[in-house]
């Protein structure tokens, strides 16, 4: 009985068409806005979209994760271990923490920023060294970007989230125009120029990469 379902399940192509993106970071880094920009852009492009966020305790500098799923028809709003096509990490330790959610063959895009969690601050735990190298050594496609510096050069450190969206756009299956249009819609007018600049700088990062 059970075996039957497994066989049929692997033939279910509808689920295979769903693309799973996880945005992970630290409370206060702007992951929520990033997921909203993404969700709206994907909807505008014509996909069915679900975005899941957790509020409350996860703010206050805690680990924050949002899920963006899209395709012909999406049901579950969450992404589990081994399911993410792309993980967009706003911080290195969070990239390491959520690596288990990356699908085999998926892409990990990470900001090189490092934010010490409280156990590291108090000396109760150590921040692992060379995180990106260790992940690359596992044969995982990883793109690292110094989003903070790029955001600063765009005009505001607060646009690091938009830089990272720029890095990711190439892998989404959505055209740039739709993403740009969505940023215009969601970002307040007075911050629009810096955000568009940040988006462009992010796009340049992945323009040269292979995949």
């Amino acid at each position: 009985m059970t075996g039957n379902i497994i066989q049929k399940q692997t033939k279910n192509i509808k689920n295979k068409n769903i693309k799973n993106i996880m945005i992970v970071g630290v409370g206060g880094q702007g992951t929520l806005l990033a997921s909203r920009i993404l969700g709206n852009a994907l909807l505008a492009y014509g996909y069915d979209v679900r975005v899941s966020e957790v509020h409350g305790m996860s703010q206050r500098g805690g680990s924050v994760v949002t899920y963006v799923k899209y395709g012909e028809k999406v049901y579950s709003p969450v992404i589990c271990r081994g399911e993410a096509d792309i993980i967009l990490a706003f911080e290195q330790l969070e990239a390491a923490r959520w690596l288990s959610h990356l699908k085999k063959g998926g892409i990990l895009i990470t900001n090189t920023q490092r934010i010490n969690p409280m156990p590291v601050v108090t000396g109760a735990a150590e921040y692992p060294g060379d995180i990106t190298d260790k992940i690359k050594a596992k044969g995982i496609s990883l793109i690292a970007a110094d989003a903070q510096s790029l955001a600063l050069s765009a005009g505001s450190e607060k646009t690091a989230n938009v830089v990272l969206i720029g890095v990711m756009t190439k892998y989404l299956g959505v055209d740039d125009i739709t993403v740009e249009k969505t940023i215009r819609e969601l970002v307040p007018a007075r911050f629009l120029d810096v955000n568009m600049k940040a988006y462009e700088l992010g796009r340049n990062i992945s323009a040269g990469s292979v995949k």
Partner: peptide
């Protein structure tokens, strides 16, 4: 639990310190 199908994934091998929420 229902299909007996375990998730297939890689993970970071070293311990990853938790990031509990803190007073701002």
């Amino acid at each position: 639990k229902i299909l007996g199908k375990a998730a297939d994934y890689d993970s970071f091998e070293e311990p990853v310190p938790p990031r509990p929420p803190v007073l701002c």
